[in-house]
Simulated scan of single mutants.
Amino acid sequence: MDIVERINSLIKEKNLTKREFAKRLRDLEPKLKTTGETPTEKTIYKYLDGNSSIKVELLPYIAEALQVTEQELFTYDKKSRKKYLQNIMRNISQDELKIIKNRIELIEPETPLEKESSDRYKDSSELKEIIELLPYAPKPLLENLKIKLKEIKEFNRSI
């Protein structure tokens, strides 16, 4: 599978249309080295159709628009994922370790005490403060937050 096929596959996995993906990508305002401009929607379609080569400087933006790592744009088989994770674990930072621990906690079922704690969080002043700050967040952040919260909601329903 080449990178264009992989990107199109990820777009499908994320239940996005090519137009939605193009909008997300353009909202990140990537600049092409050759022109200094953000690629047009038409140019992005050419990339996705394989009619034009994807510029290497767009890869971090494409990964961000799809909410995946750059590595995942190239391969996602179990062997590659394992090798990638092993490389990360060799010199993992405290921040990265914290992210992994939080993810594991999401997977583990809640105890009654944790459930009670999360119910209290719904009415907390911290949550109200976050809601009050949302109008100041840039649109791409809000879109990504909405998508991620929906994913977490669905994930928790499936447990």
Score class of each variant (00 low, 15 high):
82 K>P: 00
85 L>P: 00
27 D>L: 14
157 R>I: 08
18 K>Q: 15
71 Q>V: 09
76 Y>D: 10
99 I>V: 13
72 E>V: 04
38 T>G: 09
77 D>I: 06
136 Y>T: 14
81 R>P: 00
68 V>W: 03
79 K>E: 15
126 E>C: 06
110 E>L: 15
78 K>A: 09
5 E>N: 15
131 I>F: 13
66 L>R: 00
25 L>S: 02
120 R>G: 08
5 E>G: 13
88 I>A: 04
145 L>D: 02
58 L>A: 00
30 P>Q: 04
61 Y>I: 01
10 L>F: 10
75 T>W: 03
1 M>I: 09
63 A>Y: 00
110 E>V: 08
107 I>C: 10
121 Y>T: 12
91 N>W: 02
58 L>Y: 00
70 E>F: 05
93 S>M: 01
138 P>L: 04
156 N>A: 08
68 V>E: 05
31 K>D: 10
48 L>Y: 11
142 L>D: 05
22 A>Y: 02
155 F>G: 08
11 I>V: 13
71 Q>I: 07
19 R>C: 03
114 E>W: 08
143 E>N: 07
90 R>N: 04
146 K>D: 11
104 I>M: 09
144 N>Q: 11
125 S>V: 13
104 I>Y: 05
2 D>M: 02
91 N>E: 05
89 M>E: 05
155 F>A: 09
104 I>Q: 05
80 S>P: 01
123 D>S: 15
154 E>F: 07
150 K>P: 01
125 S>A: 15
101 K>F: 14
104 I>E: 06
34 T>Y: 07
51 N>H: 12
92 I>P: 01
87 N>Q: 02
10 L>T: 05
155 F>C: 09
155 F>L: 15
48 L>S: 08
130 I>C: 03
59 L>D: 03
20 E>A: 04
81 R>V: 10
104 I>N: 04
37 E>R: 15
149 L>F: 10
138 P>F: 03
21 F>I: 12
65 A>F: 02
100 I>M: 15
24 R>M: 05
127 L>D: 06
70 E>K: 11
102 N>Q: 14
127 L>P: 04
104 I>W: 04
128 K>G: 09
120 R>Y: 11
101 K>L: 15
74 F>T: 05
152 I>H: 06
56 V>A: 07
73 L>M: 06
106 L>Q: 14
135 P>D: 11
68 V>F: 05
112 P>I: 09
154 E>Q: 12
62 I>D: 00
61 Y>C: 00
153 K>L: 06
65 A>L: 04
133 L>N: 08
114 E>L: 13
132 E>N: 13
42 K>L: 03
94 Q>H: 04
119 D>W: 10
105 E>P: 05
31 K>A: 12
152 I>L: 12
101 K>P: 03
138 P>R: 06
35 T>H: 13
92 I>S: 01
56 V>I: 12
13 E>Y: 06
137 A>G: 01
15 N>C: 10
38 T>V: 15
120 R>S: 10
57 E>F: 06
90 R>H: 03
83 K>G: 00
158 S>Q: 12
20 E>Q: 14
129 E>C: 06
14 K>N: 13
46 K>I: 02
